[in-house]
Nucleic acid binder design. Structure first.
Length: 140
DNA sequence: AGCCTTTGACCAGCG
DNA sequence: TCGCTGGTCAAAGGC
């Protein structure tokens, strides 16, 4: 990382309400806990399916990062989710979907007559366009 | 049986 | 030139 011109990179910080109902997790390893949490938490539905292909702990920011890739073979879109706490997750979108509006998860969910760009736009509106100020300008 | 998730290791790029 | 971090791929296990 260092290049901000690979493709379109969107950032979206969201806060997810914890489910006190199932918060009976034992005192297992923190990592295990967070990891499990990321999986349990319902990430924002972009209307696309993502496949997790990796996860790592970024020391620079002291947060966990999960790497997702669009299920579509013709799609180069990638999603990256990072979180420090179980209630604060940040989703970063990379690239654009080639299967315009071809939502596999929610087919015809409100006549998606728009393209991927619109989807991102919607996300920005929902999550807020604070992606510009959330820059973690490496302190070093 | 198939698909998805998870963990580790390897590689590349940058400082 | 070496070291470190981030990112991706591969393999195994579980559901």
């Amino acid at each position: 990382m260092s290049k901000a011109s690979s493709s379109s990179t969107r950032e979206a910080s969201i806060s997810i309400s914890e489910d006190k109902s199932e918060d009976n997790y034992n005192d297992r390893e923190e990592v295990k806990e967070m990891d499990r949490r990321a999986h349990r938490l319902v990430l924002p539905e972009d209307g696309y399916e993502w496949k997790k292909y990796g996860q790592k702990f970024i020391k620079n920011i002291g947060k966990f990062r999960s790497y997702f890739r669009c299920q579509m073979a013709n799609c180069i879109a990638k999603k990256r989710a990072e979180w420090s706490t179980s209630t604060d997750i940040r989703i970063v979108y990379d690239g654009v979907h080639t299967h315009y509006g071809s939502s596999t998860t929610r087919p015809g969910s409100s006549g998606s007559s728009s393209n991927a760009a619109n989807q991102y736009n919607l996300l920005t509106q929902v999550f807020g366009d604070q992606s510009t100020q959330q820059k973690q300008g490496r302190s070093s």
